[in-house]
């Protein structure tokens, strides 16, 4: 049951920033799918909720200047329906498709997912492999941070209390690049990730890997990149041997915990399997792309 709370509904962007700057107890609420759950569990007592859903600055998906830019208030359902996301950020499209259930997807926003920063937050791995950056805005100014630097730990980010996450952007992928995402959960819908992974591989004309990105969710206090695994692929072609080695390194990068969804050992084990499957599928896609 929800306790009593005060609320604000700023009509303009400036008003919203001013309220955040003036009152340290103000908590932005977007879809509320984390905030309301927290409140029911007794968190956020005595805080003032600020509804940011109606601010136009937080909405829209566009492709310009070689980047995809989406508003922080973009819902997961909007991501799922957007042809631009399917075309330019397929792993994010897949993550959106595996996210919660249709009801939650209609409310949940990308900004809320990133700021809440659960280790299992599903938009992180795909955005990490896309090299996404987040835009943080306050009365003091605007700053862009690479996503990998933005997230710090369980529910911890670089966001300052007076900042709003206005948008997320990432560069369009080069040619001969492919990426995929997979979520493992205990059931198909309305389930938190046991673990999730996204991979992306860029290749040269000979099919050699020029850059690789491997990101993992729910295997450490924050979503992580498996740098050693990525490095092991650079300069190599994707073969059973290189894929297996990268997957093993990805498994070793995990620092999982035991919890209600899975044991640590199982997470480490399936992380390796899932990365292997994703790299194998990416390889197939790149080869098909080369033939076409």
């Amino acid at each position: 049951m929800l306790p009593d709370y005060d609320s604000l509904a700023p009509a303009t962007w400036a008003e919203a920033l001013a309220a955040l700057a003036a009152q340290p107890d103000v908590v932005p609420i977007a879809g509320g799918t984390n905030v309301v759950v927290g409140m029911r569990a007794g968190e956020l007592r005595g805080r003032t909720l600020m509804d940011i859903n109606r601010l136009p600055e937080l909405h829209g998906i566009r492709v310009s200047d070689g980047h995809v830019v989406i508003g922080g208030g973009t819902t997961v359902a909007e991501l799922l329906a957007s042809p631009a996301i399917t075309e330019h950020a397929y792993p994010l499209h897949q993550a959106a498709a595996a996210f919660a259930n249709p009801l939650v997807r209609n409310r949940a926003t990308i900004g809320g997912n990133l700021v809440d920063a659960s280790p299992a937050a599903d938009t992180y791995p795909p955005l990490l492999v896309l090299d996404a950056e987040v835009e943080l805005v306050s009365l003091h100014g605007v700053r862009w941070l690479p996503l990998d630097q933005f997230v710090l730990g369980v529910n911890q980010t670089e966001r300052r209390p007076e900042e709003l996450l206005r948008s997320v952007r990432w560069p369009l992928a080069p040619e001969r690049s492919a990426g995929l995402h997979h979520k493992l959960a205990l059931r198909k819908g309305t389930a938190c990730s046991v673990m999730s992974a996204a991979v992306r591989v860029d290749t040269d004309q000979l099919g050699r890997c020029t850059a690789a990105r491997i990101a993992l969710g729910a295997v450490a206090p924050r979503p992580i990149r498996a740098h050693e695994a990525e490095q092991s692929l650079v300069g190599e072609s994707l073969t059973e041997v290189t894929i297996r080695r990268a997957a093993q390194l990805a498994g070793q990068a995990c620092r999982p915990i035991d919890d209600v969804r899975s044991s640590a050992a199982y997470r480490r084990r399936v992380a390796e399997v899932v990365v292997r499957r994703l790299l194998t599928a990416v390889d197939l896609e790149l080869k098909e792309g080369a033939q076409a």
Binding site: V37, A41, L186, R187, K188, G189, T190, A191, C192, V260, R261
Partner: peptide, 17 residues
């Protein structure tokens, strides 16, 4: 109850299963 009694971790089979 682990998960605090939220359904997300109750794992009841849903239509997808």
């Amino acid at each position: 109850v682990a998960g605090g009694g939220y359904w997300i971790d109750a794992k009841t089979a849903a239509i997808g299963e």
